[in-house]
Design a protein around this nucleic acid. Structure first.
Length: 427
RNA sequence: GUGGCUGUAGCUCAAUGGCAGAGUGCUUGACUGUGGAUCAAGUUGUUGCGGGUUCGACCCCCGUCAGCCACCCCA
């Protein structure tokens, strides 16, 4: 094997077919976001370590970030998530921005993790936030955006579901079980792992946390109560709104969804493949105070994030990833010989002016090689101008799909190709 | 950070201690102005890297790097 310098572990190479898939996904994200009236924005890829360290429970900055000193010695971090930048940028212009703010973003993030299925060290993430609002209507809108995205990539409720819960609903019931306020977060983390652990282990863990047998039983009753959302006014109104937004069939109540993240304070949701083979496709929730860690006045909101890796795995698994066909050129212009090359180049320029994608074979070569190149490019048409055509001011145009060819005047080629392309589409 | 599996031709993979192979791709020709089909010939190697054991290592051992998978985590 030849010595090729390796890429950085976990970094992503985007070959043209990868880039095509990336653009396909981005296009759907952009389309859904803008249809709900959101504006695209972005933060810097580099932030000060300090910005992330300000967040509590910052395993991200401590363990899973690319951190390095710049030339002045300041500690810089490649961004691992967008929320701190969002908080900073919103706080900087808190008095000027039109609230509620509707912002979305799609860009690269880096986490120093062990690469595996659906996870690498470099990934793209869609972030979307509705900031400055505290209502079930806002919460429902965010879920609806997620559903509309799922629809746009042709995933149905029999393939993926959004699971919704409300931390306040959970807290009220934990309180009624006399579970202490300061033990709340660790209980949430335990609930978050309910599906991953064996029942005995989970029970043992709960008792270790200091829960009594009675509290444990009460907790399990709560987690099994699939109709409990009727007792939450917030969830009831969210579900009413989801009904009105026409997305109710994608959404279920799930008391096991609590999310590991501390700053969520109300509704939380995650999207999973129904097989539960994969990690969550997207997740988000309602928060009370976006700018708490960076200074600024308290600001509620709701948002979610979706990485590009898990969704790709899920789409692949359901056979919903399109085949990205070669789209390199419509026409290959061959160079027959040096005498006629200039005419061919002129023809190519003319066809480009008419909006066709035209590649010229960049040197004189055997026609067989040039045709083969056209075939492998995926170009549908090939033009040939040899001495016979040149003397008559004509060009031979071959349609590789149909296997037919005809010889026509030079200035009629672009129109002829357009006709055949249109015929193809309408038939 | 912890553990498991894998690493051989451009690609997919054989060869289990004794001459490194197949399919596919690629090149050329059959086809002197025409691709995709077919046929023929040719071509393709630091067996990831470094060390060790052995008369002899793709094969066994140690280390290392990478990929995949699980754990951790999931912001």
């Amino acid at each position: 094997m030849k010595q090729i310098i390796q890429s950085v572990k976990g970094a992503r190479d985007f070959y043209p077919e990868d880039k095509a898939r990336h653009n396909w996904l981005y296009e759907r994200v952009r389309n859904v976001s803008t249809r709900f009236g959101y504006e695209e924005w972005d933060g810097p890829f580099l932030e000060k370590l300090e910005l992330y360290a300000a967040k509590s429970g910052d395993e991200l900055a401590r363990e899973q970030a690319f951190v390095f000193p710049d030339r002045s010695g300041e500690m810089i971090m490649l961004r691992t998530e967008l929320t701190p930048s969002l908080a900073r940028m919103v706080a900087q212009r808190q008095g000027q921005l039109v609230m509620p703010l509707r912002w979305w973003s799609y860009g690269p993030f880096w986490r120093y993790e062990k690469p595996q299925q659906g996870r690498s060290r470099e990934f793209f993430q869609w972030n979307i936030d509705l900031v400055g609002v505290n209502s079930p209507e806002g919460d429902a809108e965010m879920i609806a955006i997620a559903v509309e995205f799922l629809k746009s990539v042709d995933l149905s409720p029999s393939e993926v579901l959004i699971r919704v819960n409300d931390r306040q609903y959970m807290e009220v019931h934990l309180k009624s079980l006399d579970i202490a306020e300061d033990g709340k977060l660790s209980v949430f983390k335990l609930i978050d792992r309910y599906d991953k652990m064996k029942v005995e282990d989970w029970d043992a863990n709960a008792l270790e946390l200091g829960l009594s047998r009675k509290q444990l039983d009460g907790l399990k009753t709560l987690l099994a109560d699939m109709d409990g959302w009727h007792r939450s006014e917030n969830l009831t109104r969210i579900f009413e709104n989801l009904e009105a937004l026409g997305v109710r069939d994608y959404v279920v109540f799930d008391p096991l969804i609590v999310r590991g993240i501390d700053y969520y304070t109300g509704m939380v949701f995650e999207c999973f493949d129904v097989s539960r083979k994969f990690r969550s496709v997207l997740g988000g929730g309602h928060y009370d105070n976006l700018v708490a860690d960076v200074g600024g006045d308290p600001l509620p909101g709701v948002g979610f994030a979706m990485g590009d890796m898990v969704i790709a795995v899920v789409l692949q698994d359901w056979g919903k990833l399109p085949v990205f066909a070669d789209t390199r050129a419509d026409v290959l212009v061959t160079l027959f010989d040096a005498d006629n090359a200039a005419i061919a180049m002129g023809l190519a320029a003319n066809m480009r002016r008419q909006g066709l994608r035209v590649a010229v074979y960049p040197q004189v070569d055997k026609l067989g090689k040039q045709f083969k190149y056209a075939d492998r490019l995926g170009a549908r048409f090939v033009t040939v101008i040899g001495p016979d055509e040149a003397s008559e001011g004509q060009v031979t145009l071959k349609d590789l799909t149909a296997g037919t060819q005809l010889t026509i005047p030079l200035d009629a080629v672009a129109e002829q190709i357009s006709h055949q392309l249109v015929d193809e589409k309408s038939s």
